[in-house]
Amino acid sequence: MAEPMKIRAKMVDGAAHIFVLMIHPMETGQRKDPRSGQAYPAHFIQSFTATINDRPVLNMQCGPAISKNPVFGFRVRDAKTGDKLVVTWEDNKGEKSRAEATIA
């Protein structure tokens, strides 16, 4: 099971500023094991979605070029304090994670 995400969601100047931190190795498939010379198999988050009160607001497709333990920051207008934020990700091995937060 994937590690829990960390979420910060706060209203700033009429827009929800959202930061999500995920714990994920984001292995590119390019890095090689120095002993065996074999490449480590790719393992990275492919899609990240966010919804606010069940409205989809962000649907991000990612390649392996996102850094290890990714941080995604985005801003949403038409949101208010108390709205429910749900974020999910799925990686290339089919692992999934989901987290919820309330906009402060």
Binding site: A15, R75, D78
Partner: peptide
């Protein structure tokens, strides 16, 4: 291509 994000419903 590093990332491709679709924005909807008021996302800046």
């Amino acid at each position: 291509l590093m990332a491709h994000a679709a924005l909807a419903n008021g996302t800046e």
